[in-house]
Design a binder for these strands. Structure first.
Lengths: 209, 209
DNA sequence: AGGTAAATTGACAGCAGGGTCAAGTTCGAT
DNA sequence: ATCGAACTTGACCCTGCTGTCAATTTACCT
């Protein structure tokens, strides 16, 4: 790769990082090119697709943050506190960082690295849920799929209210958590459980909404 | 109004009703015209804006359904059961009927009749919340704004998962409700409360998401 | 039946975004 | 310093939507 191409790629990565954070991962590619001071043709040359650019720019950061919260959760003495903090912190990350929201929501199924991060973080979530279940603090009818959808709902709400009421999601999460304690379980759940396939499918289509 | 215009308006209303239900209120106006068998110019002639068409086609139905569930809630003997059923049924309506979702979410702020229905149904919601509070069954820190955002989150989730996991929202609602009982309240809520203004603003921007 | 106001039509313009590529420019190996 | 390959550029096309309007057709009143 020639030195000028290097430089341009760097400028594009920097511009993308800014704009992804400011305006979300769906920001028009032309704007990224504009902010980087190069033609959009160059962006297509160097990265080809939005997904490739995303992978190059935000995958690592998202992975780091997600690992960190999962780590904290598992190392917490109290299984409930670990779980609850995990949910809260992850929701906060989603509200704060569009890349994390994209990972957790499985948007951009064609972004390879992002999806790898998604898989990795779902595995961590499973462990955290299992630990809370085994400690008897998390209601037993709560499933991993439920957690995925809870995160999805939070991401959607946080995004939708980001401008006008940026903390609206916090109270919702509190209510949810209080409803997830073993002792809180009073209402029997609808029996219909989504299959693994449905969860994947649903996440995939989250992006379009 | 001439007889042919009458007929065309009728055809357009019918086509719009179908397509709004099938594909949501954001369905392209040209498609509505196509299904009605008239030119899209005619649609603009007769209705002018999407909002006017929505008002003409779905406002009454949505109002009726919303009134009905509110009525049922208030006439339930048990304040908790009334409240819980209300939340569940309203969420179901949102998942089922794009018009109700639009009303509750305050999308289409320019659709006058829809917004009137929105105001009316928020008033009903306030009464239902008050009743549950007064009976001591609903946790006292739960506010009307929280209910609005809970519905918003549900609508977003239901829409996003409509194809792949159409019942995903049900379990989430169950968890939420179990977290809303007075006895379930264990975690103190974040103190930040959105103002009335913020709630309106946030709803307004829901549409864009 | 005829005239005119009302209504319909579809071509057209505009906007926003994705994506391509021939022509021109720049790098850097020799 | 030169030359070919690598790279950049921006005009261009496409798609999908909204919205407008001059020309035409149609209803209906007399």
């Amino acid at each position: 790769m020639r030195a000028d191409a290097q430089r341009n790629a760097e400028k594009l990565r920097a511009a993308a990082a800014e704009l992804f954070q400011e305006r979300g991962l769906q920001v028009p590619l032309k704007e990224i090119a504009r902010r980087a001071g190069v033609s959009h043709g160059t962006l297509y040359n160097l990265f080809g697709t939005r997904e490739a650019l995303i992978d190059a720019v935000v995958a690592d950061g998202a992975a780091r943050r997600l690992d960190e919260v999962a780590q904290q959760a598992l190392s917490h003495d109290d299984a409930w506190e670990g779980f609850a903090h995990y949910v809260e912190r992850l929701c906060e990350l989603q509200a704060t960082d569009p890349a994390v929201a994209a990972v957790v929501g499985g948007r951009y199924p064609d972004a390879e690295r992002l999806m790898a991060v998604c898989a990795r973080s779902m595995e961590a979530a499973r462990r955290i849920v299992r630990r809370a279940h085994e400690a008897g603090v998390l209601r037993p009818d709560f499933t991993n799929a439920d957690l995925v959808f809870a995160f999805a709902a939070n991401a959607l709400l946080a995004r939708a209210t980001a401008d006008a009421a940026p903390d609206a999601w916090r109270r919702q999460v509190t209510y949810l958590l209080d409803g997830l304690r073993t002792e809180a379980a009073r209402t029997p759940l609808p029996a219909i459980q989504p299959t693994e396939r449905q969860v994947r499918e649903a996440l995939r289509s989250l992006g379009e909404a």
